[in-house]
Amino acid sequence: MKESRKKRILIIEDEIHIAEGLQLNLSLQGYEVQIAADGSSGLQLWKEWQPHLIVLDIMLPLIDGLSVLQSIRLEDERLPVLILSAKGSSKDRIKGFSYGTDDYLSKPFHLEEFLLRVERLMTRVSWYEGSSGLSEKTKESPCCYSFGNNRIDFQNAKAECHCGTIRLTEICRK
């Protein structure tokens, strides 16, 4: 995977016009952006590309947005997710937050509001990175432990053993 200084944003949106419009604006703001057109390719790209933020639609083909969010939350509690959906009732918003979204914006939205919300979530990502030991703390305590043929890497949330590589959950990391 290429290391880049730019913050990565994954857009999981099946309406290609909207996805491209968001990509254009976020790129102009200095983010690196990728698009997934359905739930399953969104999950695949999330694992491969490890974005800093996900912009997620709810009504998606194959796997719907809330199921995508549920899968993400099983493995990563911290990753900021912004739901962008045409479903804008308070019932839908409550459902979204109960599944673990960090922010919810209903369509149609103001571009400036969207960009400011993304910026705010990214600020929190920087805070996490600063406080979670990825900068200061990791220097003091080791992030990798090896015993026998096993290796646990807390920084990259991975464990390697005879059965392959396992992704660590947020609880394991704590």
Binding site: E15, H17, I18, G21, L22, L24, N25, A86, K107, P108, F109, H110, L111, E112
Partner: peptide, 13 residues
């Protein structure tokens, strides 16, 4: 809502 969102997005862009 979808086409309205797209139109608004590009006009604001």
């Amino acid at each position: 809502k979808t086409p309205v969102t797209s139109l608004k997005l590009y006009l604001e862009t």
